[in-house]
Design a protein around this nucleic acid. Sequence first.
DNA 1: TGTTAGCACTCGACTTAGTTGAGTGCTAAC
DNA 2: GTTAGCACTCAACTAAGTCGAGTGCTAACA
Lengths: 347, 347
Amino acid sequence: MILNDRKIKILEAIVNDYIATAEPIGSRTIAKKYDLGISSATIRNEMSDLEELGLIVQPHTSSGRVPSDKGYRLYVDRLLRCRDLTDEESSFFNDIIMNNIDHIDYLMQQTAKALSLLTNYTTVVSKPKSKKDGIKHIQLVPLDETSVIAVVITDSKAIKNNIIRTPQPVDTAALNGLSDIINNIISTHSFDEIKAFATGVIPKDADGNELFFKEVFAAAVKSVAEEDDTQLYTSGVNKMLDFPEFSDVERAKQLFRTLEEKDMLIDILQGDDSEPNSVRILIGNENNLEQLKDCSVIKTNYNIGNTEGTIGIIGPTRMDYAQAISVLNGIIKNINGVIMALSDKKT
Amino acid sequence: MILNDRKIKILEAIVNDYIATAEPIGSRTIAKKYDLGISSATIRNEMSDLEELGLIVQPHTSSGRVPSDKGYRLYVDRLLRCRDLTDEESSFFNDIIMNNIDHIDYLMQQTAKALSLLTNYTTVVSKPKSKKDGIKHIQLVPLDETSVIAVVITDSKAIKNNIIRTPQPVDTAALNGLSDIINNIISTHSFDEIKAFATGVIPKDADGNELFFKEVFAAAVKSVAEEDDTQLYTSGVNKMLDFPEFSDVERAKQLFRTLEEKDMLIDILQGDDSEPNSVRILIGNENNLEQLKDCSVIKTNYNIGNTEGTIGIIGPTRMDYAQAISVLNGIIKNINGVIMALSDKKT
DNA sequence: TGTTAGCACTCGACTTAGTTGAGTGCTAAC
DNA sequence: GTTAGCACTCAACTAAGTCGAGTGCTAACA
């Protein structure tokens, strides 16, 4: 059976209408609403063909048609018309970017939040597992009489603060000296050796310095380990309740539980890295997760400054793909644009 | 009308049963389930009195009775039997405390999470507005060729990292020198003066140092401002979906929207600070928030190390007060106990 | 051969009336 | 003061009936 132009027009009508109304679409609705110049009976015949092709389904006999995953896929691949960001959207994001340009992690969280506000879908940001991180630099900073802060900078340029109790008060100058010694040790020893310093039993000398060093190294090792764990932030999860497909509390509960399972979401976001910097779309069952079979995921990688990761939009399969993709594409371009401009200015 | 012992026993039965089942309780149920030695007809008479006293209500004629806010209040004030934490609960929390003792903010978030897991209610932690914070210390730490980190410690001992771009690479020794100069300026100038440095137009000198300082001060001022904003974390919001009172999606949506309004929650948590370190309970309308009239809040202040704030449990008015209060009380004692033990060891 | 009007049929959604049962309040007797 | 008994109430459920949006099929038409 040939998928002629008319069939595609009808499919498009069905998808558009269903995205807008969440109600199955009947032949008469299409005949009236879209001026295709054919009667409802003809549309009926065409719809029957579209169903045979697996592009639409009937929830039950004598109901209208609803797009199938395959139908959405065709729609997304061939019919989607993306738009550019509006000026308001652009400046909305630019403000966020400019205000957070030096806090990349926070910037991504804010971006996710804004993306959720603009699209009315749930968003997720993940930072990938950086398999082999190490300690780059440690700086001790005085906090109060009984504690100092060990600022640990990892090779991946993550910054972690660790509060460490000291046996006796230490002044800034002394801390700077200690920092130098520690950094010297770091640059001349492997990460595994430092790990051993941190966990091994080191006899502490008269004024307790060894023990103190040990705690610093332990904090540093812990910071690296923390950084190695992928982190995931979600935003706008509650938006899901606005969709009639989740007006049943049981379904909503199940969805929320799934969205809490960070490992699963990370798998979905980070799997399938075929084309690094393009927007990828998983429709319904394509994400291979039973619990999210009624959801679609639109995702893209970002790579900004020291941080890389994935940002994704999650909505019902009946989501406004054009809108979501446009906004996601737009903001990634915006962010990159601002970053480029800044680094141009600098050189 | 006298609230005799028998009436109170019946009220207690109603509250306990309603907490367990969420179904209105009839006189016959009480007669059968609780061995009060009186018939259902007598219980009916007593219930009629309890209703007149405003302690219980009938959702509709010919249905069983349900406790009113006033009924819960009496139950909480006079009938509640709290328990100590079980060994598992204690060690569960102790692990969390020991692992996060040096990250107080994170400790509170983790505690809230654990509290939510153990009680099956939503929890909230807030850090109060510290009206007058200032800059205590700034340390510059090298990050990479184009940026340094300004670690800002506020008077309230919050630690903030700010990435600052530098015109040219600066090494650690130079940064230590700069840090000293900056800290010298901080200790000899008021916060308002520093604010002026940060925002005012300072002509930058030949090698650009002034501008660089300006950015450091700006970051410091921003850090203080951030710290001044109360922060609020919620945990286990989804647990609310488990209660039949929110099985209607509209209600759930409204509740979730309210729980997103951080300002409102902060008001509820931080208002009414009559008795600083005790557990306080707001039942139903007592929280003065229409949207939370079917919810109760159990809250207490914490004051640990450098951080103080409020931690609260939110559930339906029909919540297991004994359980929630016991756990909340228990963990606050636990935390304080560990902190005490640690500071004892130190001195 | 493709298109269309017409018609019988399907089936979820809604309405209505009837039934059930848990619960009440009242009364009269113990 | 307590209780058995009884009439009454009302939400929740069930079954039957109606409605309407939608289909598939057929026969006629261009």
